[in-house]
Lab assay of single mutants.
Amino acid sequence: RNLTILSLPEDVLFHILKWLSVEDILAVRAVHSQLKDLVDNHASVWACASFQE
């Protein structure tokens, strides 16, 4: 069985995303439609995003 980041529970993905910069979140968003939906549909992803580079 192949395990990917998409195999992780949504709460784990949120925990990972909250540590990323805006640039990295946008890069993750571009990788897969499921990740794009996760980022686009949950404001909590952006609430913790680091807007300082």
Rank of each mutant, 00 (worst) to 15 (best):
L35K: 02
L6S: 01
K18C: 05
P9C: 04
L13F: 14
S44E: 15
S21C: 09
H15Y: 08
N41G: 13
V39K: 03
R1T: 13
H32K: 00
L38W: 10
S50Y: 08
R1K: 14
R1F: 04
Q52C: 10
E10N: 05
N2Y: 08
S33L: 03
L17V: 11
S44F: 09
V12M: 00
H32V: 06
R1S: 14
D11K: 15
A47H: 09
L6M: 06
V28F: 08
L3Y: 14
N2V: 12
H15P: 03
L3W: 05
P9T: 04
F14M: 15
L17N: 00
V22C: 09
V22Y: 14
S21E: 12
A30Q: 13
E10F: 07
V28W: 03
D24F: 00
Q52K: 14
A47I: 11
L17W: 03
I16S: 04
E23Q: 09
S33N: 04
T4W: 04
D40W: 00
K18F: 05
S21K: 10
A43E: 09
Q52T: 11
F14V: 15
S21R: 11
L17M: 13
L20F: 00
D37Y: 08
W19K: 15
A27N: 13
T4R: 03
L6Y: 07
N2F: 08
F51G: 11
W19N: 15
V22T: 11
A30D: 02
K18R: 11
S33T: 10
S50V: 05
V31W: 02
K36P: 05
L3Q: 01
D24G: 05
D24T: 04
H42S: 08
R29W: 02
N2T: 11
N2M: 10
N2G: 13
D37S: 14
D11A: 14
L6G: 01
V12N: 00
A47C: 10
I16C: 09
S7N: 12
R29L: 01
I16D: 01
S21A: 12
F14E: 13
E10G: 05
H42W: 07
F51C: 07
E23M: 02
A47M: 12
A30I: 10
F14W: 15
A49K: 15
A47G: 15
K18W: 07
W46H: 08
D11W: 03
S33H: 07
W46C: 08
L35S: 02
A49D: 15
V31I: 05
L26D: 00
D11M: 06
N2C: 08
W46G: 13
V28H: 08
L3D: 05
L17R: 02
F14Y: 11
I5A: 04
V45N: 14
D40R: 03
A43N: 09
L20S: 03
Q34G: 08
D40S: 07
S44L: 06
Q52G: 11
L26V: 07
P9R: 04
N41H: 13
K36T: 03
A30C: 14
L6E: 01
L8R: 01
S21I: 08
K18H: 12
V39W: 04
H15A: 09
A43S: 13
S33A: 04
L6H: 04
A47T: 07
